[in-house]
Protein backbone atom coordinates (compact mmCIF):
# COMPACT_ATOMS: atom_id res chain seq x y z
CA UNK A 1 0.00 0.00 0.00
CA UNK A 2 2.76 2.40 0.94
CA UNK A 3 4.37 1.77 -2.46
CA UNK A 4 1.17 2.72 -4.18
CA UNK A 5 0.94 5.99 -2.31
CA UNK A 6 4.49 6.92 -3.24
CA UNK A 7 3.92 5.87 -6.81
CA UNK A 8 0.87 8.06 -7.19
CA UNK A 9 2.58 10.94 -5.41
CA UNK A 10 5.51 10.59 -7.83
CA UNK A 11 3.18 10.53 -10.75
CA UNK A 12 1.43 13.71 -9.72
CA UNK A 13 4.63 15.53 -8.92
CA UNK A 14 5.93 14.55 -12.35
CA UNK A 15 2.92 16.19 -13.98
CA UNK A 16 3.10 19.23 -11.80
CA UNK A 17 6.75 19.78 -12.67
CA UNK A 18 5.78 20.12 -16.32
CA UNK A 19 4.79 23.79 -16.35
CA UNK A 20 7.73 24.73 -14.10
CA UNK A 21 10.19 23.17 -16.55
CA UNK A 22 8.49 25.04 -19.35
CA UNK A 23 8.90 28.28 -17.45
CA UNK A 24 12.63 27.68 -17.07
CA UNK A 25 12.98 27.11 -20.76
CA UNK A 26 11.41 30.47 -21.33
CA UNK A 27 14.58 31.99 -19.91
CA UNK A 28 14.61 32.58 -16.19
CA UNK A 29 17.81 33.91 -14.57
CA UNK A 30 20.02 31.17 -13.13
CA UNK A 31 19.87 32.50 -9.56
CA UNK A 32 16.14 32.57 -9.52
CA UNK A 33 16.13 29.09 -10.95
CA UNK A 34 18.07 27.61 -8.04
CA UNK A 35 15.99 29.46 -5.48
CA UNK A 36 12.86 28.32 -7.21
CA UNK A 37 14.24 24.77 -7.23
CA UNK A 38 14.60 24.79 -3.49
CA UNK A 39 11.11 26.16 -3.07
CA UNK A 40 9.85 23.60 -5.52
CA UNK A 41 11.54 20.79 -3.63
CA UNK A 42 9.95 22.02 -0.44
CA UNK A 43 6.50 22.31 -1.95
CA UNK A 44 7.01 18.98 -3.70
CA UNK A 45 7.47 17.25 -0.38
CA UNK A 46 4.54 19.10 1.05
CA UNK A 47 2.42 18.11 -1.93
CA UNK A 48 3.43 14.50 -1.60
CA UNK A 49 2.50 14.46 2.06
CA UNK A 50 -0.78 16.10 1.27
CA UNK A 51 -1.54 13.56 -1.40
CA UNK A 52 -0.52 10.72 0.83
CA UNK A 53 -2.70 12.09 3.60
CA UNK A 54 -5.79 12.46 1.47
CA UNK A 55 -5.41 9.33 -0.61
CA UNK A 56 -4.47 6.96 2.20
CA UNK A 57 -7.95 6.40 3.67
CA UNK A 58 -9.56 5.73 0.30
CA UNK A 59 -6.67 3.56 -0.75
CA UNK A 60 -6.86 1.69 2.54
CA UNK A 61 -10.52 0.91 2.00
CA UNK A 62 -9.83 -0.04 -1.61
CA UNK A 63 -7.16 -2.48 -0.54
CA UNK A 64 -9.27 -3.89 2.26
CA UNK A 65 -12.47 -4.37 0.28
CA UNK A 66 -11.20 -4.83 -3.28
CA UNK A 67 -7.59 -5.88 -3.56
CA UNK A 68 -7.52 -8.18 -0.59
CA UNK A 69 -10.73 -10.08 -1.52
CA UNK A 70 -9.39 -10.48 -5.07
CA UNK A 71 -6.22 -11.99 -3.69
CA UNK A 72 -8.21 -14.21 -1.31
CA UNK A 73 -10.38 -15.42 -4.17
CA UNK A 74 -7.32 -16.32 -6.22
CA UNK A 75 -5.77 -18.06 -3.23
CA UNK A 76 -8.99 -19.93 -2.48
CA UNK A 77 -9.29 -21.08 -6.08
CA UNK A 78 -6.15 -23.17 -5.66
CA UNK A 79 -7.55 -25.19 -2.76
CA UNK A 80 -10.33 -27.63 -2.12
CA UNK A 81 -12.10 -26.08 0.83
CA UNK A 82 -15.53 -26.65 2.36
CA UNK A 83 -15.62 -23.47 4.38
CA UNK A 84 -14.54 -24.88 7.73
CA UNK A 85 -10.99 -24.96 9.00
CA UNK A 86 -7.80 -23.79 7.35
CA UNK A 87 -6.92 -23.97 3.66
CA UNK A 88 -4.91 -27.17 3.50
CA UNK A 89 -5.83 -29.22 0.49
CA UNK A 90 -3.84 -27.57 -2.30
CA UNK A 91 -5.03 -28.70 -5.74
CA UNK A 92 -3.27 -26.25 -8.04
CA UNK A 93 -5.28 -25.47 -11.14
CA UNK A 94 -7.63 -28.42 -10.73
CA UNK A 95 -10.56 -26.20 -9.76
CA UNK A 96 -10.09 -24.20 -12.94
CA UNK A 97 -10.12 -27.38 -15.00
CA UNK A 98 -13.33 -28.43 -13.28
CA UNK A 99 -14.98 -25.08 -13.90
CA UNK A 100 -13.97 -24.95 -17.55
CA UNK A 101 -14.99 -28.58 -18.12
CA UNK A 102 -18.34 -28.10 -16.43
CA UNK A 103 -21.28 -28.19 -18.83
CA UNK A 104 -23.21 -26.03 -16.41
CA UNK A 105 -20.55 -23.34 -16.36
CA UNK A 106 -20.12 -23.34 -20.13
CA UNK A 107 -23.91 -23.24 -20.49
CA UNK A 108 -23.99 -20.31 -18.08
CA UNK A 109 -21.29 -18.50 -20.04
CA UNK A 110 -23.24 -19.01 -23.27
CA UNK A 111 -26.37 -17.69 -21.55
CA UNK A 112 -24.43 -14.61 -20.44
CA UNK A 113 -23.20 -14.03 -23.99
CA UNK A 114 -26.71 -14.45 -25.38
CA UNK A 115 -27.92 -11.86 -22.87
CA UNK A 116 -25.05 -9.48 -23.74
CA UNK A 117 -25.79 -9.71 -27.46
CA UNK A 118 -29.56 -9.64 -27.26
CA UNK A 119 -29.64 -6.79 -24.75
CA UNK A 120 -27.72 -4.58 -27.15
CA UNK A 121 -29.49 -5.85 -30.25
CA UNK A 122 -32.93 -5.25 -28.75
CA UNK A 123 -32.44 -2.26 -26.49
CA UNK A 124 -30.32 -0.15 -28.84
CA UNK A 125 -32.83 0.30 -31.67
CA UNK A 126 -35.79 0.30 -29.29
CA UNK A 127 -34.20 2.77 -26.89
CA UNK A 128 -33.11 4.99 -29.72
CA UNK A 129 -36.57 4.99 -31.27
CA UNK A 130 -38.22 5.84 -27.97
CA UNK A 131 -35.66 8.54 -27.22
CA UNK A 132 -36.14 10.17 -30.63
CA UNK A 133 -39.88 10.02 -30.14
CA UNK A 134 -39.75 11.47 -26.65
CA UNK A 135 -37.37 14.18 -27.79
CA UNK A 136 -40.12 15.75 -29.85
CA UNK A 137 -42.31 18.32 -28.21
CA UNK A 138 -45.62 16.67 -27.48
CA UNK A 139 -48.40 16.39 -24.97
CA UNK A 140 -47.60 14.20 -21.93
CA UNK A 141 -43.90 14.08 -22.68
CA UNK A 142 -42.87 14.23 -19.02
CA UNK A 143 -45.37 11.57 -18.04
CA UNK A 144 -44.22 9.23 -20.80
CA UNK A 145 -40.58 9.70 -19.82
CA UNK A 146 -41.45 8.87 -16.21
CA UNK A 147 -43.33 5.74 -17.23
CA UNK A 148 -40.48 4.52 -19.38
CA UNK A 149 -37.94 5.16 -16.66
CA UNK A 150 -39.99 3.72 -13.81
CA UNK A 151 -38.95 0.05 -14.15
CA UNK A 152 -35.31 1.04 -13.97
CA UNK A 153 -35.83 2.69 -10.58
CA UNK A 154 -37.56 -0.40 -9.23
CA UNK A 155 -35.26 -2.72 -7.26
CA UNK A 156 -34.32 -5.75 -9.33
CA UNK A 157 -35.56 -8.11 -6.61
CA UNK A 158 -38.93 -6.38 -6.42
CA UNK A 159 -39.31 -6.47 -10.21
CA UNK A 160 -38.34 -10.14 -10.17
CA UNK A 161 -40.97 -11.06 -7.58
CA UNK A 162 -43.67 -9.10 -9.46
CA UNK A 163 -42.89 -10.78 -12.77
CA UNK A 164 -42.60 -14.18 -11.12
CA UNK A 165 -46.17 -13.80 -9.85
CA UNK A 166 -47.47 -12.38 -13.13
CA UNK A 167 -45.95 -15.29 -15.05
CA UNK A 168 -47.36 -18.07 -12.87
CA UNK A 169 -48.64 -20.87 -15.08
CA UNK A 170 -52.44 -21.22 -15.12
CA UNK A 171 -53.23 -18.79 -12.31
CA UNK A 172 -50.95 -15.88 -13.24
CA UNK A 173 -52.28 -12.64 -14.72
CA UNK A 174 -50.52 -13.09 -18.06
CA UNK A 175 -51.76 -16.63 -18.64
CA UNK A 176 -55.27 -15.63 -17.60
CA UNK A 177 -55.25 -12.72 -20.06
CA UNK A 178 -53.88 -14.89 -22.86
CA UNK A 179 -56.55 -17.49 -22.25
CA UNK A 180 -59.23 -14.80 -22.20
CA UNK A 181 -58.34 -13.80 -25.76
CA UNK A 182 -58.23 -17.40 -26.88
CA UNK A 183 -54.49 -18.06 -26.90
CA UNK A 184 -52.89 -21.06 -25.27
CA UNK A 185 -50.01 -20.21 -22.95
CA UNK A 186 -47.15 -22.73 -22.71
CA UNK A 187 -48.28 -25.63 -20.50
CA UNK A 188 -45.16 -25.51 -18.32
CA UNK A 189 -45.40 -21.75 -17.93
CA UNK A 190 -43.07 -19.10 -19.33
CA UNK A 191 -40.39 -19.70 -16.74
CA UNK A 192 -40.83 -23.47 -16.53
CA UNK A 193 -40.26 -24.22 -20.20
CA UNK A 194 -36.61 -24.79 -21.01
CA UNK A 195 -36.86 -23.25 -24.47
CA UNK A 196 -38.76 -20.17 -23.37
CA UNK A 197 -37.34 -19.32 -19.95
CA UNK A 198 -34.22 -17.48 -21.12
CA UNK A 199 -36.13 -15.45 -23.69
CA UNK A 200 -38.79 -14.60 -21.14
CA UNK A 201 -36.06 -13.26 -18.90
CA UNK A 202 -34.55 -11.27 -21.78
CA UNK A 203 -37.93 -9.65 -22.42
CA UNK A 204 -38.20 -8.71 -18.73
CA UNK A 205 -34.65 -7.38 -18.71
CA UNK A 206 -35.55 -5.24 -21.71
CA UNK A 207 -38.57 -3.88 -19.85
CA UNK A 208 -36.41 -3.21 -16.82
CA UNK A 209 -33.44 -1.56 -18.49
CA UNK A 210 -34.84 0.17 -21.55
CA UNK A 211 -35.42 3.19 -19.29
CA UNK A 212 -31.71 3.66 -18.73
CA UNK A 213 -30.96 3.54 -22.45
CA UNK A 214 -33.74 6.04 -23.16
CA UNK A 215 -32.68 8.46 -20.45
CA UNK A 216 -29.03 8.35 -21.54
CA UNK A 217 -29.94 8.82 -25.20
CA UNK A 218 -32.25 11.69 -24.30
CA UNK A 219 -29.45 13.33 -22.37
CA UNK A 220 -27.16 12.82 -25.35
CA UNK A 221 -29.73 14.36 -27.65
CA UNK A 222 -29.72 17.56 -25.62
CA UNK A 223 -26.06 17.94 -26.53
CA UNK A 224 -26.72 18.03 -30.26
CA UNK A 225 -26.59 21.75 -31.22
CA UNK A 226 -29.78 23.18 -32.68
CA UNK A 227 -27.78 24.99 -35.37
CA UNK A 228 -27.05 21.68 -37.05
CA UNK A 229 -30.73 20.88 -37.31
CA UNK A 230 -31.48 24.34 -38.62
CA UNK A 231 -28.74 24.08 -41.21
CA UNK A 232 -29.98 20.66 -42.29
CA UNK A 233 -33.52 21.93 -42.57
CA UNK A 234 -32.35 24.86 -44.66
CA UNK A 235 -30.65 22.37 -46.95
CA UNK A 236 -33.96 20.54 -47.26
CA UNK A 237 -33.09 17.38 -45.33
CA UNK A 238 -36.00 15.15 -44.38
CA UNK A 239 -36.65 14.08 -40.72
CA UNK A 240 -35.15 10.67 -41.45
CA UNK A 241 -32.07 12.18 -43.05
CA UNK A 242 -31.57 14.47 -40.08
CA UNK A 243 -31.70 11.51 -37.69
CA UNK A 244 -29.42 9.34 -39.78
CA UNK A 245 -26.81 11.92 -40.71
CA UNK A 246 -26.78 14.16 -37.65
CA UNK A 247 -28.49 12.84 -34.54
CA UNK A 248 -27.25 9.27 -34.45
CA UNK A 249 -23.60 10.05 -35.34
CA UNK A 250 -23.51 12.74 -32.69
CA UNK A 251 -25.05 10.32 -30.19
CA UNK A 252 -22.16 7.92 -30.86
CA UNK A 253 -20.23 8.48 -27.63
CA UNK A 254 -23.41 8.12 -25.54
CA UNK A 255 -24.39 4.93 -27.32
CA UNK A 256 -20.94 3.44 -26.90
CA UNK A 257 -20.88 4.25 -23.18
CA UNK A 258 -24.36 2.80 -22.73
CA UNK A 259 -23.41 -0.37 -24.60
CA UNK A 260 -20.43 -0.78 -22.31
CA UNK A 261 -22.58 -0.49 -19.18
CA UNK A 262 -25.10 -2.87 -20.67
CA UNK A 263 -22.42 -5.43 -21.48
CA UNK A 264 -20.88 -5.36 -18.02
CA UNK A 265 -24.31 -5.60 -16.40
CA UNK A 266 -25.23 -8.57 -18.57
CA UNK A 267 -22.07 -10.40 -17.61
CA UNK A 268 -22.81 -9.89 -13.93
CA UNK A 269 -26.52 -10.69 -14.12
CA UNK A 270 -27.73 -12.40 -10.97
CA UNK A 271 -30.60 -11.02 -8.83
CA UNK A 272 -33.42 -11.06 -11.34
CA UNK A 273 -32.66 -14.58 -12.51
CA UNK A 274 -32.16 -15.85 -8.98
CA UNK A 275 -35.57 -14.55 -7.92
CA UNK A 276 -37.42 -15.86 -10.96
CA UNK A 277 -35.84 -19.21 -11.78
CA UNK A 278 -32.76 -19.82 -9.62
CA UNK A 279 -31.05 -20.64 -12.90
CA UNK A 280 -33.58 -23.34 -13.78
CA UNK A 281 -35.35 -25.14 -15.30
CA UNK A 282 -32.51 -27.57 -15.82
CA UNK A 283 -29.95 -24.72 -15.81
CA UNK A 284 -31.61 -23.16 -18.84
CA UNK A 285 -31.29 -19.67 -17.35
CA UNK A 286 -28.14 -20.13 -15.30
CA UNK A 287 -25.56 -17.35 -15.48
CA UNK A 288 -21.95 -17.35 -14.36
CA UNK A 289 -22.84 -15.49 -11.15
CA UNK A 290 -25.54 -18.06 -10.41
CA UNK A 291 -23.09 -20.90 -10.96
CA UNK A 292 -20.73 -19.19 -8.56
CA UNK A 293 -23.30 -18.76 -5.80
CA UNK A 294 -24.60 -22.30 -6.28
CA UNK A 295 -21.16 -23.78 -5.91
CA UNK A 296 -20.02 -21.50 -3.12
CA UNK A 297 -22.92 -20.72 -0.85
CA UNK A 298 -25.15 -23.70 -1.55
CA UNK A 299 -22.63 -26.48 -1.94
CA UNK A 300 -19.69 -25.23 0.10
CA UNK A 301 -17.33 -25.86 -2.84
CA UNK A 302 -15.53 -22.62 -2.15
CA UNK A 303 -12.48 -23.52 -4.23
CA UNK A 304 -14.59 -24.08 -7.33
CA UNK A 305 -16.55 -20.90 -6.62
CA UNK A 306 -13.26 -19.04 -6.26
CA UNK A 307 -12.00 -20.39 -9.58
CA UNK A 308 -15.29 -19.49 -11.26
CA UNK A 309 -15.08 -15.97 -9.90
CA UNK A 310 -11.56 -15.56 -11.26
CA UNK A 311 -12.68 -16.87 -14.65
CA UNK A 312 -15.63 -14.47 -14.61
CA UNK A 313 -13.26 -11.66 -13.69
CA UNK A 314 -10.97 -12.41 -16.62
CA UNK A 315 -13.80 -12.73 -19.10
CA UNK A 316 -15.19 -9.38 -17.97
CA UNK A 317 -11.70 -7.86 -18.03
CA UNK A 318 -11.05 -9.05 -21.58
CA UNK A 319 -14.41 -7.69 -22.69
CA UNK A 320 -13.78 -4.38 -20.98
CA UNK A 321 -10.25 -3.91 -22.31
CA UNK A 322 -11.13 -4.94 -25.86
CA UNK A 323 -14.14 -2.67 -25.85
CA UNK A 324 -12.12 0.25 -24.52
CA UNK A 325 -9.36 -0.35 -27.05
CA UNK A 326 -11.43 -1.09 -30.12
CA UNK A 327 -14.60 0.87 -29.72
CA UNK A 328 -14.35 3.56 -27.10
CA UNK A 329 -10.84 4.69 -27.97
CA UNK A 330 -11.90 7.49 -30.26
CA UNK A 331 -14.28 8.83 -27.64
CA UNK A 332 -11.65 9.01 -24.96
CA UNK A 333 -9.14 10.49 -27.43
CA UNK A 334 -11.63 13.11 -28.54
CA UNK A 335 -12.33 14.03 -24.95
CA UNK A 336 -8.68 14.51 -23.99
Amino acid sequence: MADNVTASADASSATSSGPAAGATRQGRPAAGQSAGGRRAAHSDLRKRLEIAFFVAPALGLFVLFVVWPVITAVQMSMFRWNGIGPLENFVGLDNYARVLNSDVFIGSLVNNLIIVASSIAIQLPLGLAIALLLNRRMWGQGLLRTIIFMPYVLAEVVAGVIWFQLLQPQYGVIDTLLEAIGLTPPPQGWLGDMDLALWTIIVILTWKYIGLAVILFLAGLQGVPDELYEAAQLDGASWWQVQRKITIPLLGPTIRTWAFLSMIGSLQLFDMVWIMTRGGPANATSTMAIFLVNEGTNRANFGIAGAASVVLFFIALVFAVLYQQLIMKRDTKGGA
Binding site: V66, P69, V70, A73, Q75, G265, S266, L269, G296
Partner: peptide, 29 residues
Protein backbone atom coordinates in the same frame (compact mmCIF):
# COMPACT_ATOMS: atom_id res chain seq x y z
CA UNK B 1 -29.55 -4.75 -20.21
CA UNK B 2 -27.47 -2.85 -17.76
CA UNK B 3 -27.11 -2.52 -14.09
CA UNK B 4 -26.26 0.71 -12.43
CA UNK B 5 -22.57 1.05 -11.80
CA UNK B 6 -20.74 3.93 -10.29
CA UNK B 7 -17.65 3.60 -12.42
CA UNK B 8 -17.72 1.81 -15.72
CA UNK B 9 -14.24 0.49 -15.33
CA UNK B 10 -12.95 -3.01 -15.40
CA UNK B 11 -11.47 -2.51 -11.97
CA UNK B 12 -14.84 -1.82 -10.45
CA UNK B 13 -16.20 -4.91 -12.13
CA UNK B 14 -13.36 -6.99 -10.83
CA UNK B 15 -13.98 -5.61 -7.40
CA UNK B 16 -17.62 -6.62 -7.50
CA UNK B 17 -16.86 -10.07 -8.72
CA UNK B 18 -14.13 -10.62 -6.23
CA UNK B 19 -16.20 -9.18 -3.43
CA UNK B 20 -18.93 -11.62 -4.28
CA UNK B 21 -16.47 -14.45 -4.14
CA UNK B 22 -14.93 -13.10 -1.00
CA UNK B 23 -18.29 -12.72 0.64
CA UNK B 24 -19.20 -16.28 -0.28
CA UNK B 25 -16.06 -17.63 1.12
CA UNK B 26 -15.33 -15.88 4.33
CA UNK B 27 -11.81 -16.49 5.36
CA UNK B 28 -9.86 -19.67 5.40
CA UNK B 29 -7.35 -18.79 7.98
Amino acid sequence: MTRKMRGASAVALGATVALLAGACAGQGT
